[in-house]
């Protein structure tokens, strides 16, 4: 009787969602890993080829370049986004009367998709800044930043900070307001300066917010595609291609499904390891309350 009811409950409540989840996520994932060990060409796989696809992927010098570029992008964007976002959170949790309207402004870019943000900034870097720089003889922007690999990297960082700092700001705000008021009052009575309070009380007590925000920016950095596509399109000379775009190009533009999928599996492993590493480190700094 009881087991019949539990079986019924399983079917009613969880069968469909679990079936859809399995079809959409698990099946392609298992399939995808399997394909990398075959001669799969996008349509059929006739035989197993061992690690050939992985060997080929790592023999591709552009893949190494992409990995380096992506690694640099992830590290720099993590630092920049979180530093800015934490600053914004401090501003909007201060006693300013204008804090709510400021928060609204900081959050707006986050509402809009990366593609639209990317083309907005493409206009700014390619046209607006160039025309202003020529008018006022401003050397830095005379040539579009997007035509130079190094400057295009910083353009990507700027747009990413602009896009994601509002979201991470919310995470930090949540952390900051979760700190008990009496702890802060006690430190004030003890005569701690605001900087001291921030460093020795606030930050350790909200370490969990850092764990979350760092994790989200790490993952976001590895998965970045929209801004990359709309801002630089991978150019100049495919030198600003992040890993997502590299995989997309390899598979869908050049038809290399075998290596494309192997690179995607490599990407998954890198993301998983990096996230595991970051979360383990961050957790160590969290104070148990």
């Amino acid at each position: 009787m009881m087991s019949k009811r539990t079986a019924k409950k399983f079917l009613q409540f969880s069968f469909l969602p679990l079936a859809i989840f399995t079809i959409v996520l698990i099946v392609p994932f298992v399939n995808g890993v399997y394909y990398t060990f075959t001669d799969w060409d996008g349509f059929e796989a006739t035989k197993l080829v061992g690690f050939d696809n992985y060997v080929k992927s790592f023999q591709d010098p552009t893949f190494w370049a992409t990995l380096r570029f992506t690694g640099l992008f992830v590290v720099v964007s993590m630092v920049a986004v979180n530093a800015v976002a934490f600053g914004l959170a401090l501003i909007v949790t201060s006693k300013l009367r204008s804090r709510n309207i400021l928060r609204t402004f900081f959050f707006v870019p986050n509402l809009i998709g990366g593609v639209v943000l990317g083309v907005i900034w493409q206009f700014i870097f390619n046209s607006a800044l160039v025309s202003i720089a020529n008018k006022y003889d401003w050397e830095l922007f005379k040539e579009s930043w997007l035509n130079d690999t190094n400057k295009a990297f910083w353009a990507l960082i700027i747009v990413t900070v602009w896009q994601s700092s509002g979201y991470m700001m919310i995470v930090y705000i949540t952390g900051l307001i979760s700190i008990e008021q009496d702890v802060l009052e006690a430190s004030q009575i003890d005569g701690a300066s605001p900087v001291r309070t921030l460093l020795t009380i606030k930050i350790p007590l909200m370490a969990q917010a850092f764990t979350i925000a760092l994790f989200l920016t790490l993952r976001g950095g590895f998965m970045a595609y929209d801004v990359n596509l709309a801002l630089t399109g991978g150019g100049p000379f495919r030198e600003t291609e992040l890993i997502s775009m590299h995989i997309f190009q390899d598979a869908f533009a050049n038809g290399n499904f075998g290596t494309g999928q192997s690179k995607a599996v490599v990407m998954f492993i890198v993301v998983a390891l990096a996230a595991l590493f970051q979360v383990t480190i961050s957790k160590r700094y969290e104070v148990q309350r």
Binding site: F21, P28, G32, Y35, G42, F43, I243, F248, A251, F257
Partner: peptide, 19 residues
């Protein structure tokens, strides 16, 4: 379910589109 959240879409999209 929780573990699956770490899988980037890019790791699925190629077999996904074929299938």
């Amino acid at each position: 379910l929780v573990t699956s959240m770490i899988v980037p879409f890019q790791a699925l999209m190629i077999p996904f589109m074929a299938r």
